[in-house]
Amino acid sequence: MSPGPYFERHAQTFVGALGRLARRPLASALIMGVIGIALALPLLLQLLVQNARALTSNGADAFELAVYLKPATEEAAARTLASQLRGRSDLAAVRLVTATQGLAEFREHSGFGAALDLLAANPLPHVLLLTPAENSRGSEALQRLQSQLKELPAVDDVQLDTAWVKRLQAMLDLLRQLVLSIGALLLAGVAVIVGSTIRFEVTSRRHEIEVMKLLGGSNAFARRPFLYSGLLYGLGGGLVCLTLVAVARYRLDPAVRALTATYGQDAGLIGLGFELSLAALAAAMALGWLGAWVAASWQIRHIDPT
């Protein structure tokens, strides 16, 4: 057999399948919608995880030790301590936030401006924000640094601010696992949706399949148009899914920008990216094909002309 008629036949079957889909626009749109939603759910979760990770990894770079000085400490003493600490090799950066600066920042962000004016004295202590050096960020090194700092006479308390980052990352890992299992379930669901639709289509075209078989058509021949239908359902569903994700991203982007701004960053929502989008589309088509294959093979094998 030359490739000409082979290609021609497939092209014809493909156009036929497209025509059948177009003849029942509502039913086809519904199926594609269901597939699209089923696929969009894990992808949106993935988007969430991906963005949260990006945010917290930026945060992890910036993690700090907050050293609260005793209230009685003079500002000059605080400056001296700061420059002493800058000499330590296990610290990358030392920033002094004096009580006055602290109050000004608080006034600006909290909205309690007027109330603060009633205070006779500044209740805040001076704070030193320390960024550990790259090689001193292990938990042991940090513990050691923390206890050394606590020994200093001017120091009231030292707070290590990494626990929440770790907790968040553990939660994200959990969420990622969840995305994977939910994703697997929903992907299977897509194959099942397409399968049951195709099952119905095969039943409604039973007479045609019987005639094909009487004329010497093989099961594979009778199955082919349904495989194309499945593929098209998958493609349509995949496009619906990408649209849903794009819309969600567009709607959420301003909120995310506002959130990152509070961290002193300006980052929008990270999208799925070309590769993941393409993979989602390919997966949708493959699942449509697979669901159709299983359903049509089973049904058609059991149609015997009389």
Partner: peptide, 11 residues
């Protein structure tokens, strides 16, 4: 045309 299509004859 059905038997010919099944047999894969060219258009």
């Amino acid at each position: 045309a059905m038997p010919l299509v099944i047999a894969g004859r060219p258009r």
